[in-house]
Structure formats: structure tokens, C-alpha cells
């Protein structure tokens, strides 16, 4: 029960920080994707369901706060959470570089999905330009802050990152 409340609070706090305070560490207009880090963290630690619900809540919050059509971030987060959870079953190491790589890949997929959805809705946007100038830098920035965020998440949720039972 305590873990579930902490989980919900962490998601809302991450979404709030993402939409308010995170602009403080903006670099060339790029900020890390904090909710996505939570999605990947819970995907690695708790499996697909927790990752998808994390993505759902964080996505709804960002859709509403960002004044985008409801479902935009939700779809991206949920898909990325599911994929990250599926892939993390195959990972055999706890090395930070592997987790950073996973986050980078997840952020890339997330950004491309987001751009794809945006492109479907507004074909006149420069999708390639957006991927090169926004998605890739944001993915890199998110990957860079991964060790720090994962460390604090591990502290908050009381256990170190570990593979779920049954992972090889």
C-alpha cells in the first residue's frame, strides 16, 4: 500500500517538476524527460503493468498540462513502458551503462512516436528536423541524468535495481 501511494506521488511529482521546475536546467531549449525515466525505472523493476500505468498517469498529466490532445503522451509513454519492460527481461546486467542505454533507446522511441503522432496530425511540421534537433538531444540529456535519477528512485522505493523474478 505504502509503495503504491509513493509510486503515485512520485509520478505526479515528476510530471509536475517536468512541467514547472525542470526548465531551470534547460540547455539550448532541451530538458530531460523525467516521467519517461520513471516509466523505464518501473519497467525495469516492476514489469509491464506498473510501467504502463506509470506512463498512463504521467502521460495524462503532461497532455493536460501541455495542452495537447489527450492521449498523445499517454500512447507514447505506455508503448515505451511496455517495450522497456519486455526488453529489460532480456538484460543480464545491472551496469549503469546498460540502464543508460536502455533509457536512451526508450527516449528515442518515445520521441519518434511523439513526432510520428504529431506528423499524422500536422503533416506540415518538419519531422526530420524535429527528430534531429529535439528528440536526439532530449534523449541524450535524459540518458545523462539517468544514473542520478535512478539512484534517488532506488532510495525512495527502498531497494536497488534488480531484475524481476524470472528474468534471465
Amino acid at each position: 500500500m505504502y509503495r503504491a501511494i509513493a509510486w503515485a506521488l512520485a509520478i505526479i511529482a515528476a510530471a509536475l517538476v517536468q512541467t514547472t521546475w525542470l526548465s531551470v536546467i534547460k540547455v539550448e531549449g532541451v530538458i530531460p524527460n523525467l516521467p519517461l525515466l520513471l516509466v523505464v525505472y518501473f519497467a525495469v523493476n516492476d514489469g509491464e503493468e506498473r510501467a504502463m500505468f506509470t506512463g498512463l498517469i504521467a502521460g495524462v498529466f503532461r497532455d493536460v498540462a501541455g495542452d495537447t490532445t489527450l492521449g498523445h503522451y499517454v500512447l507514447c509513454n505506455v508503448l515505451v513502458g511496455y517495450l522497456a519492460a519486455r526488453i529489460s527481461h532480456r538484460l543480464v546486467t545491472d551496469h549503469p551503462a546498460v540502464k543508460t542505454g536502455l533509457v536512451f533507446s526508450a527516449a528515442l522511441v518515445h520521441g519518434m512516436l511523439y513526432t510520428l503522432l504529431l506528423y499524422v496530425q500536422k503533416p506540415d511540421i518538419g519531422a526530420i528536423h524535429m527528430i534531429l534537433n529535439v528528440v536526439v538531444p532530449e534523449s541524450l540529456y535524459t540518458a545523462i541524468v539517468t544514473p542520478v535519477v535512478f539512484f534517488f528512485l532506488a532510495l525512495c522505493f527502498g531497494r536497488r535495481l534488480s531484475h524481476p523474478a524470472g528474468a534471465t
Binding site: 514489469g47 509491464e48 503493468e49 504502463m52 500505468f53 498512463l56 490532445t69 489527450l70 492521449g71 498523445h72 499517454v74 500512447l75 505506455v78 508503448l79 511496455y82 519492460a85 503522432l117 496530425q121
Partner: peptide, 16 residues
């Protein structure tokens, strides 16, 4: 998990 994924994706797509 797949069912949940399908439901959420379907709702998201409908909303979009």
C-alpha cells in the same frame, strides 16, 4: 499486460 496495453492504446487512439 497485453490486454491493458491494447485497452490504453485503443483509448488513446480514439482520443487522438
Amino acid at each position: 499486460p497485453v490486454v491493458i496495453l491494447c485497452i490504453i492504446v485503443a483509448l488513446s487512439l480514439a482520443s487522438l
